[in-house]
Amino acid sequence: MLRDKKTYDILVVEDNPGDFTILEDLLIDRLFKPVIDHAKTFKAASVFLKDLTMQYDVILLDLSLPDKNGVALVQEMLHISGNIPVIVLTGYTDVTFSIKSISLGVEDYLLKEDLSPDLLYRTIVYAIQRKKSVKELEESEKRYSDLFQFSPEPVMVYDMSSLKFLSVNKAAIEKYGYSELEFLNLTMTDIIADNTDADLITASIFRDFKLGVNIRHRKKNGELFYVAIHSSMLQLNNQPVTIVNASDISQTVEYLKAIEAYTVKLKEIAWTQSHIVRAPLSRMMGIVNVLKQIGTSNPEFNEWVIHFDNSAKELDNIILDITRKTEAVKIGD
């Protein structure tokens, strides 16, 4: 007979010694060196489960124990078993309740009269696998929920036809200043400052669109800020919804504006100054031309040299002035 090589840690909660022996035999039949702990009462079982050095793979639970039975036993066992799958063991007389225990949260039930090594083995393996899958699914859901909730950027989900908010994350609540409840009574248009045309907003969100710099959102306190919007559509409870990530880019926008203004000022300086520079410069060129033609022996020569010198000084002052004005222009003025 093939035996599972994996070592299983199993907690058997069973007060009847005969039933326990049968279970033990059936387990050993298919499992390679299982670690089997035996609790005869609920109290004993809870002591085993409190021992954190033991990580049980499965709990086999008899439905009638001396200190607890029925619904109370199942509920309290599930309460202390955590992620360990619980399989209920019962007799024919308790079939109805066994089925009910599934809805309470146990993984499976086995009728003692039907037990066989194969059935017991399969039930255990399936129970462990099922519990593991459910746990993974729950973790994955939590991971996505965390991604939404703990995203540093405001994220909002809204209904595509009514534009009403359906869900907002913590960052959105902090950024906009609305409580979650207040948010759920607003529509997407309520937070858009510059354009309240709902059609345009919807249309803009349908495309992967880059309004970015032009769109501002309004906080509860009236404060406006520029946003870069990233959105996508998805189905939530069979309703088309839009999930929006709104990044505050006010700082970037303000900085860009400051740089643009700065550039304009520098251009103005460059333009006006270059024209002012050219006037004395073209006079100097004209004087040189005169000097070349009249020659050094001409009595006017010295007079023209003085004119040249004055023009040169004028030019120097103009250049100094440009440097001063350019240095005085600061980003953000």
């Binding site: 006037a279 006079r283 004209g286 005169v290 033609q293 009249i294 004119h307 004055n310 023009s311």
Partner: peptide
């Protein structure tokens, strides 16, 4: 409006 430029222009026009 610049007197020096007028002087230069006059001179260049004359000698050319």
């Amino acid at each position: 409006d610049n007197e020096l430029l007028l002087m230069i222009a006059k001179k260049v026009i004359a000698i050319s």
